[in-house]
């Protein structure tokens, strides 16, 4: 009970969610343990049409982290609603759909389809760095005006709780967070991956088939913590922290910096079993530190 979170009009029995794209649609982690171990679930990013994603190889380890260039491979929003959402909704915890697009019309289509479904909330991914130059996926989240435009457009077609997920590849993330808030976002989640690349000196080629990808894992945690703190101080809506979380101490650090909920991404790939342990350890820590509600620590950084 001490871990319970009430946010966005939803009840999460603990603050720990999977980060989009590291959990597919949940079936694979369900082979390890009950998905209700998480406070809530987040889907792989879904787009208007089915996407095949980028060419191989799509991943490589780098010091303290990993790169990925999956490129939003997904079945499309309608197939997701038909084939995957029923399974996720059966797990008994809130389900958040991660929505992506390359144009405003795409975002609006995906959001309005999700609005008609029984997902509990929408996480608008305006930050995916994998769609290439000709597409808009990158540009929405790096520009406050574009952010406002896409968030307002989506806000018009859905009454569901709307989380806007930010990219760290910007000069001032607080400005983007404020733009999303002013356009009607109900919460901010951050961070997505940092634009990055890896090079093979033998072939003198980039290791990823897509040449560039996104960095995630423990290496990005300090960046993510700082940005969480920046955004927490800039907006009034709840903040969801993400980036390099792999144990309960990471969760506490993000909460001290202002996160109401957190997401675990790369940590799940390193060790799918880290989540049940994180939940148990967090509960124990609260007991030992006489914390009755996690609200007591959110934003409690002593500065």
């Amino acid at each position: 009970m001490v871990l319970e979170r009430k946010v966005l009009g939803l009840k999460f029995k603990n603050p720990i969610l999977p980060a989009s794209g590291t959990f597919n649609m949940g079936r694979e982690v369900a082979e390890f343990y009950e998905l209700a171990t998480f406070g809530g679930l987040i889907t792989k990013g879904v787009t208007r049409a089915k996407r095949q994603g980028n060419v191989a190889p799509r991943t490589v380890e780098t010091v303290g982290g990993m790169l990925n260039s999956v490129g939003l491979q997904n079945p499309g929003v309608d197939a997701f609603i038909k084939n995957d959402l029923p399974f996720m909704k059966k797990q008994g915890v809130p389900v958040i759909a991660n929505a992506c697009g390359t144009t405003i019309e795409d975002y609006v289509y995906v959001a309005s389809q999700l609005d008609k479904s029984n997902v509990d909330a929408i996480e608008l991914n305006i930050s995916c760095p994998n769609l290439g130059k000709s597409c808009g996926g990158m540009s929405f989240g790096v520009d406050p005006e574009m952010t406002k435009e896409v968030v307002s457009a989506v806000r018009k077609v859905t009454k569901k709780p709307l989380i806007v997920k930010l990219t760290p590849n910007v000069t001032n993330i607080a400005v983007i967070a404020k733009a999303a808030e002013s356009a009607g976002a109900d919460a901010i989640s951050l961070i997505n991956t940092l634009a990055a690349m890896a090079v093979d000196i033998k072939t003198r080629k980039p290791i990823l088939g897509n040449k560039v990808g996104g960095l995630s894992g423990p290496a990005v945690k300090p960046v993510a913590l700082k940005m969480t703190w920046d955004v927490f101080n800039a907006v009034k809506i709840p903040v969801i922290g993400c980036g390099g979380i792999s144990d309960y101490r990471d969760v506490i650090e993000f909460m001290l910096c202002g996160a109401t909920l957190v997401q675990v991404g790369t940590g799940l790939l390193t060790d799918p079993m880290c989540v049940p342990k994180m939940v148990a350890d967090l509960e124990k820590w609260c007991r030992e530190n006489k914390i009755n509600s996690l609200d007591e620590i959110v934003g409690g950084l002593k500065v």
Binding site: F23, N24, A56, T59, N68, L269, P272
Partner: peptide
């Protein structure tokens, strides 16, 4: 184990 779609 199928969760990340990195091994296409």
């Amino acid at each position: 184990f199928g969760a990340c779609l990195c091994c296409n």
